[in-house]
Write a protein that binds this DNA or RNA. Sequence first.
DNA 1: TCCGTAGTTCAGAAATTCGGAACTGTTGAT
DNA 2: ATCAACAGTTCCGAATTTCTGAACTACGGA
Lengths: 114, 114
Amino acid sequence: MRPLFHPALEDIKPEAILYALSDPERVAIYAKLAGAACGGTCSALADLGDRVIPKSSLSNHFKVLRESGLIRSERQGVEMRNQTRCAELDERFPGLIRAILTAYGQLPEQLKTG
Amino acid sequence: MRPLFHPALEDIKPEAILYALSDPERVAIYAKLAGAACGGTCSALADLGDRVIPKSSLSNHFKVLRESGLIRSERQGVEMRNQTRCAELDERFPGLIRAILTAYGQLPEQLKTG
DNA sequence: TCCGTAGTTCAGAAATTCGGAACTGTTGAT
DNA sequence: ATCAACAGTTCCGAATTTCTGAACTACGGA
């Protein structure tokens, strides 16, 4: 497996963020990740309720999220641990992620600051 | 020419907004529209400085912006008048447009409210 | 009516997306 | 050591989307 690429904070491009989050499936995945203590493995996030995302598509979604700078992925044994880069991102693009998740009606409790 | 379609405010989808603004050319066009009193005609917005957008591509950009709900277009004689739906949109998706334009470093003076 | 201008539509080439099948890397059991 | 099971990745072909030159439409003025 190729090493996973993660952009440095200063290399993150707004167009990549917007593109990644212009797909409702990816938003659903990202919101779950930002929210619950779901462990963050890929397969734990594949089930959208109305549909189960195929493995290869899912893998691609994670690649898009990762390479846009939205999440960080790390292999841990046999599975992949994914976490959002929320805090970092909010520093670089203040209010952006919050506004987007809110627009989708998917802002998780954890991010509803004061 | 087919009649121009504009979604009603309540039909505007966040994914369409994000998709439309995931293209830096469209962002440049939109930011100019939101900013200066440039008249809002298509051709007035075609020049990006480093490149002139071909007519057909430009027309398509406007279609994407219009059908996502970001702008309103209206024929006025031989030309097309375009204006943003900023205020409306901010009601539906508070802070979204502002955060996006800010992320791109393209928030026009007009929108820098107090 | 005929011309010029603003923008749209068409069409085909190029690029992107999707997802099944095959593959890789890791753990645990025999 | 070998094997099986499992999580996720890569490959590749089909389908969809994007891009843009060329042809076209719509309007206004002479």
